[in-house]
Deep mutational scan, measured.
Amino acid sequence: DVEPGKFYKGVVTRIEKYGASINLNEQVRGLLRPRDMISLRLENLNVGDEIIVQAIDVRPEKREIDFKYIP
């Protein structure tokens, strides 16, 4: 289970102007929005990149997770 405040290694699977889709595994994925990137710009991400993200909002009833990137 993903817990708010914990850090996870994820893989960038899609990049859109509203954010990047991050997969932690086949069943768990979430969104990294541009506003939640401290020192990383969306255009510097590539599909397949592995990054460390922090879960900031977990809504299991909607199967949604928001991530934050902290270098």
Rank of each mutant, 00 (worst) to 15 (best):
S39C: 15
I52S: 06
L42V: 05
L40T: 06
L31K: 06
N44Y: 10
K62S: 13
I70Q: 08
K62L: 14
G10P: 00
V47A: 01
R35C: 10
V53I: 08
E61I: 07
R63L: 12
I65N: 02
P60V: 13
L24C: 08
D36T: 04
E61G: 13
L45Q: 00
A20D: 02
E50T: 14
P4G: 05
L42W: 06
Y8D: 00
V12S: 00
F67V: 04
R59Q: 06
R33H: 07
K17D: 12
V11N: 02
G19A: 08
F7T: 04
D36G: 04
Y18R: 12
K17C: 13
R33P: 04
V47W: 02
L32K: 02
I51T: 00
F67P: 02
G19L: 04
E64I: 11
V58M: 05
D66S: 14
Y18I: 12
Y8P: 00
I38R: 07
N23I: 12
G19T: 06
M37C: 10
R59T: 05
R33T: 03
V11G: 00
L31W: 14
E43N: 08
D49Y: 06
Q54S: 06
K68F: 08
K17W: 15
L31S: 03
R63W: 11
K9C: 14
I15D: 00
R33Y: 04
R35L: 08
E43S: 11
G10R: 00
P71M: 09
D36H: 13
P60Y: 12
Y69S: 03
E16G: 15
E3R: 13
V12H: 00
N46G: 08
G5C: 12
K68E: 03
Q27L: 12
Q54V: 12
V58N: 06
Q54M: 15
I70S: 09
E3D: 05
S21M: 15
V12W: 06
N44S: 12
R35K: 14
G5M: 07
I70C: 12
S21E: 14
T13L: 05
V11K: 09
K6N: 08
L32T: 01
Y8C: 11
G10H: 00
P34Y: 08
D1P: 12
D57C: 14
F67L: 09
Y8F: 04
R29Y: 14
A55C: 15
R41Q: 10
L31Y: 08
L42R: 02
K6A: 06
Y8R: 00
R35G: 11
E43H: 10
I15E: 00
E16R: 12
K68D: 02
L24P: 01
P34S: 08
R33Q: 05
L32I: 05
L32F: 04
L45T: 00
R14A: 13
K62P: 06
G10W: 06
G5I: 02
K9T: 09
E3Q: 14
G48C: 07
M37R: 01
S39L: 11
I22E: 00
R33N: 04
E3G: 04
F7D: 02
P60M: 09
E64F: 11
P4S: 10
E26M: 11
N25F: 08
L40N: 04
L40G: 06
E26L: 10
G30V: 07
P34K: 08
G48Y: 02
L40V: 06
I38P: 06
P4K: 14
P71A: 11
D1I: 14
S21P: 02
T13G: 06
N44C: 14
A55N: 00
E43R: 08
N25V: 07
S39N: 14
V12A: 00
R59C: 07
K17Y: 13
G48V: 04
D57T: 13
S21W: 15
Y8I: 01
E3W: 09
V53Q: 00
P60I: 09
E43C: 12
I38L: 10
D49M: 13
V47K: 02
R14D: 05
R63N: 15
G5L: 07
Q54P: 00
Y18Q: 10
D36I: 05
L32P: 01
P71S: 09
N23T: 14
I51Y: 00
Q27E: 13
L24N: 02
L31C: 14
V28S: 05
K6Y: 06
I52F: 09
A55R: 03
L32V: 02
F67H: 02
F7K: 05
D66R: 15
G19E: 03
T13S: 10
I65C: 08
V2M: 05
I65Q: 03
K68W: 05
K9I: 11
Y18W: 15
Y69E: 05
V2N: 01
K17N: 11
V12T: 02
I51M: 02
R59K: 08
V2P: 05
L40D: 02
V47M: 05
G19Q: 03
L40H: 05
D66C: 10
R14T: 07
E43L: 06
L31E: 05
Q27W: 15
N44Q: 14
D1F: 14
E26N: 15
Q54R: 05
S39Y: 13
N23S: 15
A20R: 01
K6I: 06
I70W: 13
P34E: 11
N46K: 14
K6G: 07
I38A: 10
I51F: 03
F7H: 05
E50W: 15
Q54T: 06
L24R: 00
R35P: 05
R14E: 07
E64G: 09
N46C: 13
P60F: 09
G5D: 05
L42G: 03
V53G: 01
E26K: 13
N25H: 07
K9Q: 07
G30W: 05
K68G: 13
E61M: 08
Y69A: 02
V11P: 01
E43K: 09
D36K: 03
Y18C: 09
F67G: 01
E16C: 13
F67S: 01
K62N: 10
R35H: 12
E50N: 09
K62R: 12
L40W: 04
G5N: 07
L40A: 06
R33E: 03
V47N: 02
D49N: 02
L45A: 00
R59N: 10
K6L: 09
I65V: 11
Y69D: 02
Q27P: 05
F67R: 02
I52K: 04
P60W: 12
I52C: 15
L45E: 00
G48P: 05
I15Q: 00
N23C: 15
V11H: 06
K17V: 13
K9H: 09
R29E: 12
D1N: 14
R14C: 09
G19I: 05
I38K: 08
D36N: 14
L45M: 07
R59P: 03
E50R: 11
Y8A: 00
P34D: 07
I15L: 07
G5E: 04
A20T: 03
L32G: 01
K68Y: 07
I38N: 10
K68C: 10
R33W: 04
P34W: 11
P4A: 13
L42D: 02
R41N: 09
P71W: 08
L42S: 02
K9P: 03
L31M: 14
S21I: 15
I65E: 02
E3P: 15
E61H: 10
V2Y: 10
T13I: 08
L40K: 05
G10A: 10
K9M: 10
T13P: 00
D36E: 04
Y69I: 04
S39R: 11
V28G: 04
V47S: 02
D57Y: 14
P34L: 09
P60C: 09
E64A: 07
E16A: 12
V53K: 00
R59I: 05
D66E: 09
E26Y: 10
Y69W: 07
V11D: 02
V28M: 07
